[in-house]
Write a protein that binds this DNA or RNA. Structure first.
Lengths: 140, 140
DNA sequence: CTCCATGCAAAAGGTTTGCACTCCC
DNA sequence: GGGAGTGCAAACCTTTTGCATGGAG
């Protein structure tokens, strides 16, 4: 789907590119797991030690706003960030421990709101969220 | 849809019924807007002043776990709680200000995960979440 | 009578903010 | 050179927790 590297797309958007931002974008482009801001910081610092948590938050929020990154709020634990792959993958979260998994429910190609239900929003993400309790936290 | 009053269903589940819990359940049963824990506390105290925030959180978490209440994490602002109406209503949230609206996308009757993708979870809520920015926070 | 729920306040995160400094464009 | 981005640490909010007390079943 999304074959163009993230950095190219960002350059095309005339996004101010600093070393910190570049490294953070690279982390998000490479990892297809759900990283917390803290984990993004960790991996970014492996490449560039002088990165701060505040910048990670700033940058992730911008990437989300640009629709390049998806944010998933698990209600337990910190917000997680996921590169927006464009495939129809969705999420299953544990409300107690925050465990997060990808799922691929079928027949949801048409995840779009009619204009009459958009309320003037600029929508950057559509997703199906299943909430429950994992087997460790209170399974069936 | 859900015609049985919440309290009756709770009694049927042999749920320990204290004055505080009853009042909180009544608030949730009556209100079809998305209330934060703080707002639930406010309304519960109108009926019973000696209710604490901790109890509101405890009780709401239990109701969520029982599948009787839905929790929506907007990423901005506090978690919101919604009575589980059973109709196919979903949510549109503003990532910046936390504004939350009901939407009714079509053709999503089959919001269920195949067992192979449930990972042993006990699922209590399925919903479609549209994230974006409202017209005040950065519309189109 | 026995647990379990409650209240209070403190603790525990996670995320944002203010300000001085840096450096990308 | 100017304005946007950054780092640091403190502030902010929301939610959970510990412990003594009280009340539902």
């Amino acid at each position: 789907m999304t074959s163009t590297p993230l950095l190219e797309r960002l350059r095309a958007l005339h996004w101010r590119l600093t070393p910190q931002r570049r490294v953070i974008a690279e982390v998000m482009d490479g990892e297809h797991v759900h990283l917390s801001a803290e984990e993004v910081l960790e991996r970014a610092r492996e490449r560039l030690p002088e990165v701060s948590l505040a910048t990670v938050y700033n940058t992730l929020n911008e990437l989300v706003s640009m629709g390049e990154v998806q944010q998933v709020d698990a209600a337990a634990g910190p917000t997680r960030y996921d590169p927006n792959t464009g495939d129809g993958h969705h999420h299953l979260v544990c409300l107690k421990c925050g465990d997060l998994r990808d799922v691929h429910p079928q027949g949801l190609d048409v995840l779009e709101l009619p204009r009459s239900e958009r309320f003037g929003y600029r929508i950057v993400n559509r997703e199906v969220l299943f909430q429950g309790y994992c087997s460790d936290c209170g399974g069936p």
